[in-house]
Computed example of a mutant assay.
Amino acid sequence: MKKKNHTPEQIITKLRKVEALTAQGATVAEATRQIGVAEQTVYRWKKHYGQMDHSQAKRLKELQKENARLKKLLAEKDLDAEPGVSERRACKVLGQSRSTQGYASKKPEKDRTRTKRMHQLAEDNPRAGYRMITGLLRREGWRINRKRVHRLWKRSGLQVPKKQRKRRRLGTSGNGCVRLKAQYPGHVWSVDFLFDTTEDGRQLKFMPVLDEYTRECLVIDVSRSVTSERVIRELTRLFQEHSPPGNLRSDNGPEFIAEALKHFLADQEVETRYIEPGAPWQNGYVESFNATFRDELLDRELFSTLLEAKVLSEQYRRRYNQYRPHSSLDYLTSAEYAAATQKQPVEIWTTPSELPTSPQFDNGNEIKDGHQEPVPALT
């Protein structure tokens, strides 16, 4: 157990408490147990502080500090008067061990490479905490303990402030992510919208679709506006690539409650799972992705055009699936977890520089109806 140093004020407070307890009939042993110190310590405190009050203890503390300062000044003056004094005598005057004087720490040199890489990862992932950084380091081949990462993380001042949010009740709906939880890949998909603007002030609307079991982001559709017809078109493409899910969870937005979309999902035998109005926490998985997406991309980028937003969103989606580990998946990426559940091989990316060209954007050009349109240079 780490030894606790008490200030004189704390000592006097505890001594007064012991006196009050003994006056009520408690034994000294019982009183010392309540204040959390040994009985011998209390007798030693009484010897030094028994007749003092708080003001006298405070004054004593100030005098001790002043005495230590004056002793140090006197020792430095003596050393200055004799410039050829030996290290042995200097340590004796200052009251310092010679082994302490000659000790050179090896930890900073040993941890310098690790700390440098941690800073690089923290710069690439500004909202990541030390646990996420530990997962990224291990994926790169570093053999490092989580506690050491935490110590270096605190020493470097890289802590990410986290806001504590109030918890809400689950509500009465059976369509929320707690009561209806995904049991296998493709069991439940969730969809939602995010909003941003381009540099000219025009609206951007992002529609991410998430597989709740594997945490894979299947698509991030970006446009100026989204209608139910566009939602149907995008879901049709996803159903052809992945096969239809068992359930589609969403809010009650006009794009999702449109009759055309309901008929389309019914034809595909997909159950619609609408959450309660004003209860976004019931669609928690996609809301969690939205928060990460906004922290790591939308709040950091200023989009000049719609096409630029599409390119960067697709790059982020592939990086999120292939490179970013998830603590809820035992620090596997969503692609690795999906491959493990389906027993399929998966390409593992250990650094963001290995990200391939997006399938919708071949060599930086957007593919539309079989034709490539050049993408403006991003700066």
Rank of each mutant, 00 (worst) to 15 (best):
R44N: 11
W45I: 04
K46R: 15
K47V: 12
K47G: 12
Y49F: 11
Q51W: 05
Q51N: 12
H54M: 09
S55N: 11
Q56N: 08
A57N: 02
A57H: 04
K58A: 10
K58Y: 08
K58S: 13
K61P: 04
K61V: 07
K61R: 14
E62K: 10
E62D: 13
E62H: 13
L63H: 07
L63C: 03
Q64E: 15
Q64C: 11
K65F: 02
E66F: 05
A68H: 01
R69G: 02
R69S: 06
R69P: 01
L70W: 06
L70D: 04
K71E: 11
K72G: 04
L73S: 14
L74H: 14
L74P: 02
L74K: 10
L74N: 13
E76G: 00
E76C: 15
E76D: 15
K77M: 12
K77A: 15
K77Y: 13
D78S: 15
D78F: 13
L79H: 07
L79W: 08
L79R: 11
D80Y: 07
D80W: 08
D80R: 12
A81I: 05
A81N: 15
A81K: 14
E82N: 15
P83G: 00
G84C: 06
G84Y: 01
V85H: 06
V85W: 02
S86P: 01
S86N: 09
S86W: 05
E87K: 11
R88N: 10
R88K: 13
R88M: 14
R88G: 06
R89D: 04
A90E: 05
A90K: 09
C91V: 00
V93C: 08
Q96D: 03
Q96F: 03
S97I: 02
S97H: 08
R98T: 07
S99I: 09
Y103C: 08
A104Q: 14
A104S: 15
S105M: 04
K106V: 12
K106P: 00
K107A: 12
P108K: 06
K110T: 06
K110W: 00
D111S: 11
T113I: 12
T113A: 13
R114L: 13
R114T: 13
R114S: 05
T115V: 14
T115G: 12
M118Q: 04
L121C: 07
A122R: 05
E123L: 10
D124V: 04
D124K: 09
N125W: 03
N125L: 08
P126I: 05
P126G: 03
R127E: 04
A128N: 03
G129K: 00
G129Y: 00
